[in-house]
């Protein structure tokens, strides 16, 4: 039996490099974000739509810092600022801080292999991001904004990320070769 045949079949996604993964993740964020702009009522129930850009911020940050994800997060942040009618720059700060925090956690702990850290770090990052969003919105709008829609969006963002987190896993830094990855 040859050596190659004894190996388990690698999935197409595992063979994909960081740049196509980054583009695919960005496409997913854009598609889900655009879908979220449409009226979302089913049988009288309003659906709390997830903040898709945060998936990218948390997922892409797990392999460390890189300029390309930062630029994508800035673009997504600007679009979110316009669609949410927020002061320009609010969601940019949110996305970049979540990205930086995700990278910092990944720098300190082994987020890929430690199950507890792998579960706790996104929960912590999403909660922190939504808390920051609430603080920014309350400060800039001059009143304490509603918490319930944000908590509902936090839940959907976290739950969907639990299912789709592989889509936002770059594997290694964009531009980094296979052997260089930490």
């Amino acid at each position: 039996m040859s050596r190659s045949s004894s190996r388990p079949n690698r999935s197409l996604w595992s063979q994909t490099g960081p740049t196509p993964r980054l583009l695919f993740g960005a496409f997913a964020i854009a598609a889900i974000g655009l879908l979220g702009l449409t009226p979302r009522e089913f049988f009288g129930f309003s659906i709390a739509w997830p903040y898709a850009a945060l998936w990218g911020a948390v997922g892409w940050g797990r392999v460390g810092l890189s300029v390309r994800p930062m630029i994508l997060l800035i673009i997504f942040g600007l679009v979110q600022d316009v669609t949410f009618h927020a002061p320009i720059g609010c969601f940019v700060i949110l996305n970049l801080l979540a990205y930086g925090a995700s990278a910092a956690i990944a720098d300190m702990f082994d987020v890929m292999n430690e199950p507890l850290i792998a579960i706790l770090s996104p929960i912590l990052l999403f909660s922190g991001a939504f808390l920051l969003l609430w603080l920014m919105a309350s400060t800039l709008e001059d009143h304490a904004v509603r918490v319930l829609p944000l908590v509902a969006s936090l839940m959907t963002t976290g739950l969907v990320y639990a299912v789709l987190n592989k889509v936002f896993d770059l594997g290694r830094l964009p531009g980094e070769s296979v052997g260089q990855a930490s």
């Binding site: 810092l65 930062m70 800035i74 720059g89």
Partner: peptide, 20 residues
């Protein structure tokens, strides 16, 4: 090697905060 990227991230966040 990472420090310039941290600096870039910091500059982006600072610029966005200044814009807000």
């Amino acid at each position: 090697k990472r420090s310039p990227k941290r600096l870039i991230l910091g500059v982006f966040i600072f610029a966005a905060a200044a814009l807000v």
